[in-house]
């Protein structure tokens, strides 16, 4: 059963003195009950706008959205008790302590004073926030704030949890901590819609991934399905002499499963390959025998940029630059 279902969502903003912006352009989305679905895309693709529509914050220009069979646009008041939301910007009150923040959210979910306090204590325990429970949030690190914000989204054990870029801006350690928490939640069977710019994050957390660009879903599937379509890992070489690039590109074309990419200065080449370790060995042996010198050689997993290059013909970063972000 589809727990969250959106069809043909569009959202058009008309900024003053500028042409209209299509933040969403016919986006379709469905999230099965008890699963984790990731919306993967660069800044400005429409991820946050989608979450805002589904969490009753904004009204789309057209389209429909249902959660648990309830019309989000017609009955926002009936949706709110079912959902938990945690955003990219920790929505906590700086002047309240961790405990007070969670207790306030519980009270506003109408849990009652006693149940609300009890739940706040449970969450502080669960999220390992005991140090922060009785200090105003003002002095907390970004990771700690984000954890309180996430705890706030879980006060009522929501039927569906929306996580908008849960780890953007976090240091690597906090990111790992956040992944652990989300993984635990998923184990408990919560339905989750998460947005992210990082393929690795989607790969690690999500059952299925929707790649979005310019307000539409441009590809969907499991992490493995998508990765297979991206062409496995990438092989990267950094040449000492740019003049060798034509020769090296020919060699790469033999082992890779797509045209090799050559950087503008001719020093960096890359290609995707199904069996990257074997291909790398083969290429290195060939370069050795021809006496072509390298600064660096390696393999890496496909990044969001590779995905975008393949699906749209432009990289994720270029896209941001072109559209001016947001």
């Amino acid at each position: 059963m589809m727990f969250v279902e959106a069809q043909g969502l569009t959202k058009i903003y008309t900024p003053k003195g500028a042409p209209p912006v299509r933040a969403l352009d016919g986006l379709d989305l469905s999230v099965p009950q008890g699963s984790v679905t990731a919306l993967l895309g660069p800044n400005g693709a429409g991820k946050t706008t989608t979450v805002k529509v589904l969490t009753t914050l904004i009204t789309p220009s057209s389209g429909s959205a249902f959660i648990d069979g309830i019309d989000v646009l017609k009955h926002p008041g009936s949706i709110r008790p079912l959902i938990g939301v945690s955003g990219q910007y920790a929505a906590v009150d700086e002047n309240l302590t961790g405990f007070e923040n969670l207790d306030m959210v519980g009270r506003l979910y109408h849990l009652g004073a006693k149940a609300s306090r009890q739940r706040a204590h449970e969450l502080i325990e669960l999220f390992d926030l005991s140090d922060a429970a009785n200090r105003p949030v003002k002095g907390f690190s970004g990771g700690m704030r984000r954890r309180i914000d996430l705890a706030g989204a879980l006060v009522t054990r929501p039927k569906v949890l929306f996580l908008d870029e849960p780890t953007t801006g976090l240091d690597p350690r906090s990111r790992l901590g956040m992944w652990d928490v989300i993984t635990t939640l998923v184990g408990e069977g919560t339905t989750v819609l998460l947005t992210t710019q990082y393929l690795e994050e989607a790969d690690r957390l999500a059952d299925s991934i929707c790649v979005i660009d310019d307000g539409k879903v441009i590809a969907r599937g499991t992490a493995n399905e998508l990765k297979a379509s991206f062409g496995g890992q990438r092989l990267e070489l950094n040449l000492v002499t740019a003049g060798d690039s034509a020769t090296v590109a020919q060699i790469l074309a033999l082992v890779g499963d797509a045209e090799p990419a050559v950087s503008a200065d001719g020093h960096e080449l890359s290609v995707s390959a199904q069996n990257a370790p074997a291909a790398l060995q083969e290429v290195l042996a060939e370069l050795e025998s021809r006496g072509i010198k390298l600064y660096d050689a390696g393999m890496r997993r496909p990044t969001l940029d590779d995905v975008f290059l393949r699906l749209t013909g432009h990289g994720a970063e270029d896209h941001v630059a072109k559209d001016g972000g947001s």
Binding site: K52, L57, R80, V85, A91, D93, E94, V105, G152
Partner: peptide, 11 residues
């Protein structure tokens, strides 16, 4: 601060 968004998603 974004806390208005938090409030607005609460019942």
């Amino acid at each position: 601060d974004g806390i208005i968004d938090r409030f607005r998603t609460l019942p």
